[in-house]
Design a binder for these strands. Structure first.
Ligand SMILES: [Mn+2]
Ligand SMILES: [Mn+2]
Ligand SMILES: [Zn+2]
Ligand SMILES: [Zn+2]
Lengths: 129, 129
DNA sequence: CCAGACATTAGACAATGTCTAAATCCACGC
DNA sequence: GCGTGGATTTAGACATTGTCTAATGTCTGG
């Protein structure tokens, strides 16, 4: 885990290793709150500020991907390979869609002086009523 | 405007007409806060609770589309025709991408008992550094 | 050991959105 | 006109997520 952090130019401190562990050992999409809870299950170890600071750092360094899908919280995705997402509105469950299932073609004209940061494709589903 | 509301099965009250007017006369993507500000420019008329209640009602009735693109606020889109979005991270500016510029193909297997509510495609751009 | 950079922290703060109970509005029958 | 009842609006308390600041802690090279 420390090596993974170092390979992304992140100084591997105790807290950062714990937070990376929470994300990568589960391979799930977690919110900051969930990361906080996992990291502090045994005994309180890591502050809220550090969780937020660290997740932001991980995103900047390309270690995890930020997902804006739920209006009330951001999710963090340890899978940075190209893939899409399926969001179940009623339950809040977020799952991956392999890049082989859906493709995006074409690109719009971009505003001058801007570059693409990422393209997000989200399929929203709800209970069949 | 009252007829537009009625055609979507919405009882056209004074406040609802004002809020619809704020959205449809501008044809822009507005946040709840911006709607609130526009509606109350001349004189305070509509409460925060009503703005939120009404926007939720409009979404339920299919009059406007909800866009989850910015981690801190929801945008409301008076354009319900199929189209995509371009989000400038640095400025928060949100603009339309015509459906002719980008296409999505394929569909993932959906969880049992669910139906598609919508498919969102968002191109995120930032200043070229 | 020391200096200085880096990292962590508690808790105040800000912003967005939700909720509740009370007030208001309005269409309807009389 | 008047009373009734459902729909609508409202103020403001509340909850949640995330940010910020100033103080403290940690580590390393010299
Ligand atoms: Mn530990
Ligand atoms: Mn008015
Ligand atoms: Zn994912
Ligand atoms: Zn749009």
């Amino acid at each position: 885990m420390a090596d993974l952090l170092r390979s992304h130019d992140i100084n591997p401190t105790h807290q950062r290793i714990e937070i990376a562990h929470a994300l990568f050992s589960r391979q799930e999409h977690l919110s900051a709150d969930q990361v906080m809870a996992f990291v502090n299950t045994r005994h309180s170890e890591t502050s809220k500020a550090t969780v937020y600071n660290t997740l932001k750092l991980f995103v900047e360094k390309g270690l995890v991907r930020e997902l804006i899908v739920d209006p009330s919280k951001v999710f963090y995705d340890p899978n940075t390979h190209p893939h899409h997402h399926l969001y179940e509105i009623d339950t809040g469950k977020l799952s991956d869609i392999g890049a082989e299932y859906m493709q995006v073609s074409g690109l719009p004209p971009l505003p001058a002086g801007t570059v693409i940061e990422g393209i997000d494709l989200i399929v929203r589903v709800r209970r069949a009523s």
